[in-house]
């Protein structure tokens, strides 16, 4: 399993900082890279794929400098770029990329067929890329990235432009690849996708890595942002009065039949609320945590770093 290591990596573009003192160690699983436009996601991908050299620090893939040919052998990149050798067919393009890894004709052909099948392009691989749709291009990009069975896959916006059915297919594919022991790093603007796919997230804000870990862990570390729990009850005002007495509750707000509770410790809050409901004979219809999703986490982190 190839480990991707960033050690206090800083990248300057003249006077502008692309990413600033980023350190992380990625080994196995699916890692979602989150960040607004200009946050440094592309710079991260370019550094990891050896296209850029860090101004300070070090980027290593399986112990080798990411810019070295040995490291590139272990990396597959699907860039956020929609141009290919347009005169070729999808099959020819992926085959040419396989050959550029040094495989013999027969082996390259087999690998190309496998990669094309994996991304669900078998029936359309013979079409010229010049007339290919956005979704087909995305799939071909994925196929060329994994044609040499890389241990580390870097995918820049892999699901953009793909229809919902295709998204499901590719999500399953990524999960399968990760299950085979690969490390998959992908960037996306669609936070629901990150939430659904990633085992771990990296959040970049203005070039800095502000969070690294599983989504729930990251959420738990946001101490200044209490969790919001929505409770729907038949008697919201009585419920609010009872809940306000609990020790871990910061604030209570009644909105129609819904009571919004802000708490620092949701686990303990849930055990207490169960006891409370039984003791007071309250009718509780629904109980939901509102801001544990990637979107809320991302907006909290961004606001915190402002």
């Amino acid at each position: 399993m190839a480990e991707l290591v960033f050690e206090r990596v800083t990248k300057f573009y003249g006077p502008v900082i692309g990413i600033n003192a980023v350190s992380c160690r990625l080994c196995g699983g699916i890692v979602g890279l989150l960040g607004a436009n200009g946050a440094g996601k592309s710079t991260f991908m370019k550094l990891a794929s050896g296209q850029l050299r860090p101004s300070l620090g070090e980027v290593r893939v399986a112990g080798r400098a990411a810019t070295s040919a040995a490291a590139r052998r272990r990396v597959g990149l699907s860039p956020d770029l929609h141009v290919f050798y347009e005169e070729m067919t999808g099959f020819q393009f992926v085959y040419a990329m396989a050959r550029l890894h040094g495989y013999s004709r027969g082996e390259a052909r087999q690998r190309t067929q496998r990669a094309i099948e994996a991304v669900g392009m078998s029936d359309r691989a013979g079409r010229r890329l010049a007339g290919a749709s956005h979704g087909m291009r995305q799939r071909i990009k994925l196929a060329q990235a994994m044609v040499h069975d890389p241990e580390l896959l870097l995918l820049d916006e892999p699901l953009s432009g793909i229809d919902p059915a295709g998204r499901r297919e590719i999500s399953l594919l990524l999960a399968r690849w990760a299950g085979e022991g690969r490390t998959i790093v992908f960037s996306s603007h669609i936070l629901a996708e990150v939430e659904q796919l990633a085992d771990r997230i990296l959040v970049l804000v203005r070039g800095r890595l502000v969070a690294d870990g599983a989504l729930a862990e990251v959420r738990g570390l946001l101490e200044d942002r209490p969790f919001v729990v929505a409770l729907e009850a038949a008697e919201p005002r009585r419920l609010a009065a009872c809940v306000a007495e609990l020790p871990e509750v910061r604030s209570v707000e009644v909105q129609g039949e819904t009571v919004l509770v802000r708490t620092r410790n949701p686990q303990r809050f849930f055990s207490w609320i169960n006891e409370l409901v039984v003791q007071e004979g309250l009718e509780l219809r629904r109980m939901e945590m509102l801001d544990t999703g990637a979107e809320a986490v991302f907006s909290y982190l961004e606001a915190a770093s402002a």
């Binding site: 296209q51 040919a69 040995a70 590139r72 990396v75 990149l77 860039p79 770029l81 990329m97 890894h101």
Partner: peptide, 14 residues
């Protein structure tokens, strides 16, 4: 010009 150089630069060829 076509930005396809990227596909060559990420291959394991020095």
């Amino acid at each position: 010009e076509d930005r396809t150089l990227l596909f060559l630069l990420v291959r394991p060829i020095p």
